[in-house]
Amino acid sequence: MWRREFDDLLNGIAGAFLFGIPLLYTMEVWDIGSDLTPLHMLLYLGLTYIALVALNRATGFRRNSDETWGRSLADSIEALALGALVACFSLIVLRRVSFDLAYDVILGKVVLETMPCAIGVGMANGLLRREDNDEEEAEQQSFWHATLVDAGGTMLGATVVGLSIAPTDEVGVIAASLPPWWLWLIMAASLLISYVIVFQAEFGDHQQRKSDRGLFQSPLSETIASYIISLVFALVTLRVFNQIDESTSLAQIIDYTIVLGLPATVGGAAGRLAV
């Protein structure tokens, strides 16, 4: 019972990151958030709640639940709270929020980023559930074929997300505000988020896999392999958009790559779900 509840919540969190990451890397959202009045904050939370009720009627983040109105209303409260937690966590990890800022700035940013994150929770089932017949198909694949398919999906997702974030200023702005040791935190967060998404998407039902599925067979090795691929693709897209070139210092290259690696690995996880 506790296990299943925990699974459902992780499922919601995975959805929040998948849907929320692009807006977490948008400067305009931080700025608009800094300048929200309390009335607007409450209004936005209210609107998000209404949208969540609608989403929970359709998909939601719980695996087995009846679609009663009471449940949808209660699930939406949880989805909103999960969205707020994810927004808060991400803003702290990306150093967009720290405790020397004014309270209304902190709250405004959290509330505004809560909107996409909470919507992501509400759509978690739609974003993450794989069809059952897909599994059988996958198990018949050979070791190398399975590895190739998963690696390809990761590259695809990492590139799509990387392409949309690499040319923007956000990477530089975030990288510039971080002390070097903070990069470890971002790496840890990237691995953790990627793990949650992977685990939820493929192993959430605790079905033991019977046959080899290539290098991506266990959640842990899948997470690490996909993170490395995502870092490489983050580096490549940064180079393509001239964010880094021959004159860039090694420290800055590392900074940028790890900062972009976070959305890229989330995109990579999404890409594996798509193929």
């Binding site: 309390p38 009335l39 904050m41 409450l42 939370l45 409260i77 949880e78 909103l80 709270a81 999960l82 707020a84 937690l85 309270y103 209304d104 709250l107 959290v110 509330v111």
Partner: peptide, 16 residues
Amino acid sequence: AVLLLSCLVGLIGWLW
């Protein structure tokens, strides 16, 4: 969840 959200809404109310 209710507790967390009441904190958030309470804080906004206090700001207001």
